[in-house]
Design a protein around this nucleic acid. Structure first.
Lengths: 241, 241
DNA sequence: CGGTCTTTTGAGTACAATCAAGGGTTGTGG
DNA sequence: CCACAACCCTTGATTGTACTCAAAAGACCG
């Protein structure tokens, strides 16, 4: 993990400006944030935070992908959230980390010291309003995932995962080419499956012509409507307003 | 569904005063809320809200128990949240209901007209702060449930459910006597299981002496440590601060 | 006392987990 | 440049848990 000097005025060129927790802040608030802000970088595989640890900072993901996990005593593990750029890490109102956070690709965080950040939140409705909206979105997403974990078949789970990645990583030109930032193991841990089952389902989707595979980490969607049907999704295109 | 006249000044004697979304409000805010507030009652089994419907009101549960569900096209159903007294129903920032809400016992709601409520939230940090904390708690709970749905066995799921009810319904004198407000079907739908499997697991826990059953809806916990072990919980007694 | 609804129990099945082995890719060192 | 190890992914064979289908036993009601 490296600490990087904060660059004055860098918010203007911030890649997640407009989506992050600070997106509604005015200039004076941004200036306050800059005073308590610093960057941190993690390499793929490094641990960002451990459940139970004292929380000294909160942060926004600037680049890369991280996971939030819950682990049982005997080692069974479930990923309870994926963290993409603009997602917020931290829990106001608590002093300890609630989840283990691990970088699955190289990750850069924009960190804020927790105490002054919370003080600013108490004063600024801009931050608390944005944080509330982001939390509500996260809650909706978690509940969608509960439906997947509780009721979907392995094939539906994998298809749903590919569509999730498509939604969250919408970029890289064509929307039908997905560069998975994740290993099969991460996919399995997120989907409540084993690695072997994920692998078999990907093979199955490929054999049925819904997707094609380039190397190991690139998925091409060959038949989007069929993939959506295979995911058992009721309303992929039109999220409720 | 019956509408009941709001009783002036009733907030003073409100059963969820201190826990609900309005718990941090001052007198003038409460007065504003009273002007846009009314009660609604539902009988067990009645639908409170349907996914996709326009949201005219938001509300707090005053008494009773309700469920939030997600349904797939083919009918597979997952309960994504239980709503107990003081829980908030509604989604600021959206115009439509995100979930189906059904009363599983007789339910009384304290409803607020949505537009003026949102206007008040925009002005009052008391409400938005409380709403943020409640949302973050709901998010933690949803993530715990993801671990249950994705990784726990049927027996662990049922044991975890009983402990959840014990936590949420802490009252009725002895903490070892649980009056389930829910049918086996609701339990199954919440746990990602079938009715039959829930029934078998309850029988199993009874046979192993961890619980006893009185009639159909009352569970007596006979061996709490063993039940906690059977739930595979790492930290039942000490939630992270 | 029948009727409906909920719960329990039983028998057979299916889906994903487990156990096990074999490819493929990448990186390191001789 | 090649050999070898490490890692990740795929495939196969077998097992086990929870689902499905079916029926009976309790509740609760008029």
């Amino acid at each position: 993990m490296n600490e990087v000097l904060a660059i004055p005025g860098v918010c203007a060129g911030c890649p997640i400006r407009g989506r992050a927790v600070c997106s509604r802040c005015d200039v004076s608030e941004l200036r306050e944030l800059e005073a308590i802000r610093f960057y941190r970088e993690y390499e793929a595989g490094q641990t960002v935070a451990c459940r139970g640890d004292e929380m000294q900072t909160v942060s926004s993901v600037l680049s890369g992908t991280a996971t939030m996990t819950r682990v049982m005593e005997d080692g069974r593990t479930q990923i309870v959230g994926l963290l993409f750029p603009s997602d917020f890490i931290g829990r106001l109102g608590r002093n300890r980390q609630q989840h283990d956070v691990v970088a699955v690709s190289d990750v850069t965080l924009c960190c804020f010291r927790k105490a002054p950040f919370e003080a600013l939140v108490a004063r600024s409705s801009h931050i608390s309003t944005q944080l509330l909206q982001m939390s509500l979105d996260a809650l909706d997403e978690a509940r969608d995932w509960m439906l997947l974990l509780g009721r979907k078949t392995a094939r539906e789970k994998v298809a749903s995962f590919l569509l999730l990645i498509r939604r969250r990583m919408a970029r890289s030109g064509s929307e039908l080419r997905l560069e998975l930032p994740l290993t099969r193991e991460v996919m399995a841990t997120y989907l409540g499956l084993t690695i072997e089952t994920v692998s078999r389902q990907i093979t199955g989707l490929r054999r049925d012509g819904l997707i094609a595979v380039e190397g190991k980490r690139v998925i091409l969607i060959r038949d989007l409507p069929a993939l959506m049907a295979a995911a058992g999704e009721d309303e992929v295109g039109d999220p409720l307003d």
